[in-house]
């Protein structure tokens, strides 16, 4: 599903990150560990198509990210919340959906129950905690069943309990073939494929 070869990320003249080879198949979840300023976020942005200043090859379903410029097949969840503050939780979740089918409605409600957001569907997100806001973004991402969900700094917005709920939400998309690539500063359970950025090189643990 995702194939990265000879990837080199530079910041000015200095090399930031090197990924010689990374492959993610359908329904797999991978975790990249790294400290601040190691290029994790820029790496995810490169996969998402927001950064093109890199060397090497990124292929999503055998096509470069530029192919998906108009019709995104990846969803990037960054550290900062991206929500419509004047709209309620429900509107924020269904925002990108052209039509909400009854099946999707049902599924969203189920996911909201998992995230303990069911009673807050009519609430404006500003009244919710940061992790709840991130749950909204996560539900909004998984309900679309994209090829790939990119989660930046996953450890920043979920504690252990919420993280297990978040991964439960992710399972819905994983079961449908979506892959997940997350970054974190600390190691997280439930990820089998874990990489660490060491000496500016991505290495599998």
């Amino acid at each position: 599903m995702l194939s990265i070869n000879n990837f080199r990320l530079k910041l000015g003249d200095a090399e930031l990150l090197e990924v010689s080879n990374l492959k993610i198949n359908n329904s797999e979840k991978h975790l990249i560990l790294g400290n601040n300023n190691t290029g994790k976020s820029l790496f995810l942005k490169s996969i998402h198509g927001l950064n093109s200043k890199f060397e090497g090859e990124i292929l999503i379903k055998e096509k470069p990210p530029i192919f998906y410029k108009r019709k995104k097949k990846t969803i990037l969840i960054e550290t900062g919340p991206h929500l419509l503050w004047e709209e309620d939780v429900w509107k924020n979740i269904i925002l990108p959906l052209p039509k909400v089918t009854s099946r999707q409605k049902q599924k969203i409600k189920e996911l909201c129950k998992t995230a303990e957001l069911f009673d807050d569907l009519k609430t404006k997100p500003e009244k919710l905690s940061y992790s709840s806001q991130k749950f909204i973004e996560l539900i909004r991402a998984v309900i679309q069943l994209p090829y790939l969900i990119l989660l930046d700094d996953l450890d920043c917005y979920f504690d252990e309990i919420n993280l297990s709920k978040a991964l439960e939400l992710c399972n819905f998309a994983l079961n449908a073939g979506t892959s997940i690539l997350a970054t974190s500063k600390t190691g997280l359970e439930n990820f089998k494929n874990i990489y660490r950025i060491q000496s500016k090189v991505l290495k599998k643990l």
Binding site: K69, R70, K71, K72, I75, L76, H82, L83, L84, L95, P96, P98, E137, R140, A141, Q144, P146
Partner: peptide, 16 residues
């Protein structure tokens, strides 16, 4: 503008 920015970040179609 803000609405459409969030819309696109959340995965909405670019030409919407």
């Amino acid at each position: 503008d803000q609405f459409w920015k969030i819309f696109q970040i959340s995965g909405g179609k670019k030409n919407s």
